[in-house]
Computed example of a mutant assay.
Amino acid sequence: MAKVLITGGTGLVGSRLIPLLKSKGHEVVVLSRSKDASKPYPIFEWDYKKEYIESGAFNGVEAVIHLAGAGVADKRWTAERKEEIYNSRTKTSFLLYNTLKNIDNKVKTFISASAIGYYGLDTGTTNLKETAPVGHDFLAHVVDAWETSTSKVTDLDIRLVQLRIGVVFSKEGGALVELLKPPVAAPLGNGKQYMSWIHIDDLCKMFLYALENDQMVGTYNAVGPKPATNREVTEAAAKAFDKKYVPIPVPGLALKVVLGEMAKMVVGGNRVSSEKIMEAGFEYDHPKLEPALKHLKSM
């Protein structure tokens, strides 16, 4: 069993991943901007803007799981917010690298969150593997820089795994909650755009799998095996959560008025391949859309 340091531990993924890691016998410590005595794990403070990590954070740590990053869909994309989205990923990665470079440590594995935004906000029906080229929009630029910054740890002879996370389905937040928030559920844009979704428990299981399997190295798409269109997802989610569904799409122009530049995230889409992670031996607990949604409702 490993001692694992996690950044972004209080976020949607981290808050679900930590109990899983502990249930498997791993010891967990967390980097956070503030202490919280109520949490069932040690917390060490850090501040990437001050280039500060509390002393002792890496004592005995054998693996790092790097989830930190400002929420992409939490606020409108002002110039200031874009800077925060970028810096909260790249500067935290550089801070971790520089700290590990300059202290004695036992870290042998570094697993970093990434995102399928790497490929661009709208790639149509093309089945995207990890070798597909980087996109040209804001989020693609962010993810490319994010992966470049985390790649620095390989200079320290540390095994690196980068998981390009798709659309995470959870009852606690994220895309599924937003889809079901309006009084009635309806497709967004033309509804034909693909959503490469993944159940949050399968995503957390992927992080655990990457931690425990030394043969995993490099970049993997962290998506489910069955992408679906926005229309298919919305209709299935409405049915699973007893929500009224209206097949009339919400126009892209209306979404742009409400969301600004962020609207490109919901009117665009990606069809992303899970072939590589499956070839690495990963097995899904929730591969199919409707059963996955029913499971989430029952949680």
Score class of each variant (00 low, 15 high):
74 D>G: 01
82 K>Y: 03
79 A>S: 14
74 D>M: 02
74 D>F: 02
68 A>E: 06
94 F>S: 13
77 W>F: 08
91 K>M: 13
64 V>W: 04
86 Y>I: 13
88 S>V: 12
92 T>Y: 00
78 T>V: 08
91 K>Y: 12
73 A>P: 02
83 E>H: 10
90 T>R: 05
93 S>P: 09
66 H>W: 05
68 A>G: 06
91 K>A: 13
82 K>C: 08
65 I>C: 00
87 N>D: 15
67 L>E: 04
82 K>N: 08
72 V>Y: 00
70 A>N: 05
68 A>C: 11
82 K>H: 07
87 N>L: 15
66 H>D: 02
70 A>K: 05
64 V>T: 10
79 A>C: 01
75 K>G: 00
89 R>V: 14
96 L>T: 14
91 K>T: 10
82 K>L: 07
87 N>K: 12
82 K>F: 03
84 E>H: 06
66 H>T: 08
75 K>M: 03
97 Y>E: 11
69 G>F: 07
66 H>S: 05
77 W>N: 06
81 R>S: 00
81 R>I: 13
81 R>C: 00
79 A>H: 07
78 T>S: 15
89 R>H: 06
71 G>K: 03
64 V>K: 00
75 K>V: 08
82 K>S: 07
66 H>C: 06
92 T>R: 01
87 N>R: 12
87 N>T: 10
82 K>D: 02
84 E>M: 12
71 G>D: 04
72 V>Q: 00
73 A>W: 01
64 V>H: 05
94 F>G: 06
73 A>R: 02
91 K>I: 12
76 R>M: 08
81 R>N: 13
88 S>Y: 06
91 K>L: 15
70 A>L: 10
93 S>H: 05
96 L>C: 12
97 Y>T: 11
64 V>C: 05
90 T>N: 09
82 K>G: 07
68 A>Y: 03
88 S>D: 11
64 V>A: 02
88 S>W: 05
94 F>W: 09
96 L>D: 15
80 E>C: 01
95 L>A: 11
92 T>E: 01
72 V>N: 00
92 T>S: 15
83 E>R: 13
93 S>Q: 08
78 T>I: 09
74 D>V: 08
86 Y>T: 12
68 A>P: 06
83 E>V: 12
89 R>A: 09
76 R>V: 07
83 E>A: 15
85 I>M: 10
96 L>G: 12
65 I>R: 01
